[in-house]
Design a protein around this nucleic acid. Sequence first.
DNA 1: GACAGACACGTGCATATGCACTTAGATGAG
DNA 2: CTCATCTAAGTGCATATGCACGTGTCTGTC
Lengths: 155, 155
Amino acid sequence: MASSTGGRPTEAPLASSETLCNCLAVRQAARQITQLYDEELAGTGLRATQYAVLSRLSRIAPATVQDLAEALVMDRTTLAHNLKPLEREGLVVMGVAAHDRRVRELRLTPAGTAKLQEARVAWARAQARFEHAFGAEDAAELRRQLARAVEAVRT
Amino acid sequence: MASSTGGRPTEAPLASSETLCNCLAVRQAARQITQLYDEELAGTGLRATQYAVLSRLSRIAPATVQDLAEALVMDRTTLAHNLKPLEREGLVVMGVAAHDRRVRELRLTPAGTAKLQEARVAWARAQARFEHAFGAEDAAELRRQLARAVEAVRT
DNA sequence: GACAGACACGTGCATATGCACTTAGATGAG
DNA sequence: CTCATCTAAGTGCATATGCACGTGTCTGTC
């Protein structure tokens, strides 16, 4: 690709904000995209992470803390912290498993289910805004690559 | 790419952890990749974000808070918080601009420059680990797409 | 039954993130 | 000069993130 024998000094010797660091690149994108989703979710009182927790829990409930954390690709202790405001607001309840008192059984409350339904509308707006700007097909491919990156790091 | 006229029922009707949310996908990847970089940087006492701050500042110093924040695609107030431990450790100094006493002039101290040099080695290990697992070319393309996503959201 | 070890989860700490609000300094209109 | 206004940056709060460590519970071994 574009050997040094050309006439033009090439178009990308070092763009002003050319980031070589994969970590910085993904964190910058995460900050920007989170702000967009948070902006749309603001009216519901939920943050992007909280929406993700409720949404995933609704599909796998009843779930243990460890199972939900793995499903969210999140540290177990991070999820424990993130659950606190959701429990305080009465959107999630944590029971104790009958067969093993160490294990928790996480579920959505009726209020949690209702809040999730409400938030899905706001989430869809954010999703649409991003994909309108970035491209729906490109977004799907980006999600695939990000998922592959998660797997690559886990290995 | 791959029209629907194939014979196979396609390979992805709904994988178990198929994430449709762009925000969740990028945050999950950011968490995993950050852990990898933090692991390599642990010996230096720097976190991934702190390395990013020092690295960027070394290229644009002296910089104002706002300029450095923009270069990092970070909220101005977030950077203000992130600078505190770096100032406390004596890696960064914040002076006052002579022409306008509201403006700060951020610079690396000699200790900060030395720490950055040391951390570059650890960063390179993390970068190599990720690109070995994910693919160097694919990583470059991923960074381009993430940068494009940042621009798309900004617009 | 007693106990070592494994296991699920919680807590404390430090940093990361950004919104709302505040403070200090600069600047132009009068 | 005075003041309204604009601007650069700081602060308080709540959540996000994960490591190190602690607590309670189960399980196999004796």
